[in-house]
Every structure is written in structure tokens, then in C-alpha cells.
Nucleic acid binder design. Sequence first.
DNA 1: CACATATTTCAGAAATTTCTGAAAGTTGAG
DNA 2: CTCAACTTTCAGAAATTTCTGAAATATGTG
Lengths: 193, 193
Amino acid sequence: MNLPPVIQAFVLHFGEMGSRWGINRTVGQIYALLYVSPEPLCADDMVDRLGMSRSNVSMGLKELQSWNLVRLMHKPDDRKDYFTTLGDIWQIVRTLVEERKKREVDPTLSVLRELLMQNPAMADEQHAQDKMREMYEMIEMLCGWYDDVRRLETDRLIQLLSLGAKVQKILEVKDRLFALPGGRSKASAEKEG
Amino acid sequence: MNLPPVIQAFVLHFGEMGSRWGINRTVGQIYALLYVSPEPLCADDMVDRLGMSRSNVSMGLKELQSWNLVRLMHKPDDRKDYFTTLGDIWQIVRTLVEERKKREVDPTLSVLRELLMQNPAMADEQHAQDKMREMYEMIEMLCGWYDDVRRLETDRLIQLLSLGAKVQKILEVKDRLFALPGGRSKASAEKEG
DNA sequence: CACATATTTCAGAAATTTCTGAAAGTTGAG
DNA sequence: CTCAACTTTCAGAAATTTCTGAAATATGTG
């Protein structure tokens, strides 16, 4: 590896982290390097700096493109392909979540849905299906929330995050304010959508 | 494998999913089987039903215990160890998130913190550190939010999730209600915590 | 303690994943 | 079309991870 120490440490760490997630070590390293680079890099730059084979870099870049994590660019009068990461850190997180959902959560939901349609042939299967339904409903709820939240603009999202659980308190205050004795208040109507 | 078809399909799916996460295939299968079982199982039950070696089951259970995902039990007059999953699905999700944070997010934060202390020796390192800081702050914000939300009781959490982004609207309503011309309102005071 | 029942460890086999160099493919310029 | 510059593919090598059987360890019972 041929990198300044701080960058090398960062790249190595993300290589390790990558291998804990589905992404492999070299893909993690390539991405980390691109993330901290001030300029787009071409494959040969990465070969030099990361010390891996040209073909490995090529495969890694292909995978990163399939994750929508990297953008292909060109420089004028240069036939090489250059790459950069895509968007700011929040956009990166959004993309990561979106892609992982697509690859992991959605297929799981569809397996569960299918299994829940089967007729249980015995008590154990019945019980298993009940547990699967519990899981299915939990995932659906998280997906519904995600589907709402992903549409927020980033500064709204940040605002919401900084609020944390204080939302609860605000809801309580609001409920008290709008509460009408024995009636369905405007607040609860809104809360229930 | 020696399992009813619906359960087998579930177990196989979670095996595959497990291998996309850090968890390996057989550990995923063991957990899936325990999750849908009405009764605690002993290691030999798992050997029978999953068709893997006794030692493999033993190692898998050890790993699941280290993740706090499985509880060891005993039956009266029986020397075998029995195992169950731990808590309802929401508790399981909490545990998973907590453990993954501990193993993946916390170490990353500490690497980043350390790298941000270094003196940049050149422009590229300076730029890299800026990007790392951006990432560090994003992770800190997510952790802060998580730290708030994890304390909520499950039904409060569910309530919050079903609310989704509608929280935003409620905030807007609230801001409008409390807004005093030119003044720091009770609402904004609360929002800023 | 001796024995039977259980669980864990661990060295190496088996399987899977990652990585490489060589060859094939692509593309723009002359 | 031909060449040079560049990228991709892919078969097999290398590395890593997973899995197993055999041996070691632990534990309750008489």
C-alpha cells in the first residue's frame, strides 16, 4: 500500500468492516479510498495505492457500481474511467440502506408472505407460522416507517434525529392541549392518520 | 434435514441471510429453528433436525450465546442443556441492534476519533480528515438518536414508528400554535431541549 | 472413585470466497 | 481497418471460513 498513514488506517479499517458486512475486504478498501479522495481516481491509481491486482480493482468497482455507491466519470482528452463516491454522507447512508433493504429485507418479506399462505399440517407448523407472522408484522412496520422517513429532506431528517425520543414528550404535551373531555380530539385524529 | 416443509424453508432462508450478515449459515439455521420452536431444544434435537454435526451445533450455540440471542435452560431431572430464543421479536431486534452497534459502530467511532487527532501532513490528509469528520458526526448523530429511542418501552416505540414522518407535521402545527411574534416560544425552547 | 452422560475443543478436511495473470473484449484515433 | 490504450472476463491459485470426527473435558450419580 502506498498511502499517507491516516488514509491507510482508514482504508484498512473499512476493509475489515466491509468483510463483516456482505461487502468484501477489497471492495471496502476501494470505497474508503474513493471516499476520502479529493479528486476522482482511475483504476490504475487504485492499483498503485492499494497494491491489489488490476482485475481485482475492476471487479470491485463493478460491485460498487451495482450498489449505486460510485459514479463513473470522464476527464476531457482522457480515455480512462474515473470514479468518485456519490453525494454527501447522508446520501451515502440513504443509498446503503435502500440497497440493503432491496437485497435483504424485501426477499425476506416475500419468503415470509409465501410461507404464511401455506396450510399448517401440524401443531408445530401452526406455531411456527404464528412466530413468522409476528416477524413479518414487525418488518412491515419498520419498512413503513422507513418509507416515510426516507422522503424527508436531509435537514428535516437531521432535525428529527436530534429530537430523538423527545418527540414523545411533545406528543404528550400536544395530546393534553387538544384533549377534549370524552371526545376524539383533533390531535388524536391526526395521530391516527 | 428433518423438518416440516414450512419450517425447513424458513430455516434455509435464514441460513442464507445469516451468511450475508456476519453470522454464518449454520448459526442462522440454528437460530431460525429455535425461533419457531414451541419448546426449548437440546443440541441433539438440532443435530437431528438440521443434519449438522454435534460439534458444529455446539459452536453455533456458543456464538449465539455471545450475541445474547439465546438462553440456556434446564429441565427438571434432565442433565441436557436446552435452549430458547430470548424475548419477543422487538426484544430480539433490540438485542441485534445493540450487539451490532457494539461490534461494528463503536470500534469505527473510536478509529475515527483517533485518526482525527493526528496532525495532517499534507493537503490530501487534510481533506481526508474533513471527510472522516463528516462521517464521524453523522454516526454520532445516529447513535444519539438510537440512544434516546432504545429507552422507549416497546409500545411507545411502536407508536412512534407508526407515526413515521407525520411527526414533522405535528411539529409544524405545534410551532405555529406556540409561535409568539418575535419571541422565543415555549415550543422552540422545548425543541432545543 | 468409577461410570455414564453431556459438552467442548481442536486439528485437519471440505467448501467457499477472494484474488491474480493471461487472454479476450472494447473503443477512439489516425 | 489497424493500432494503442484501456477494461473486463475467467480459470485456476491462494486464502479464508466452515465443518467434522475424535479426543479431551466436565458433571452428576451411585
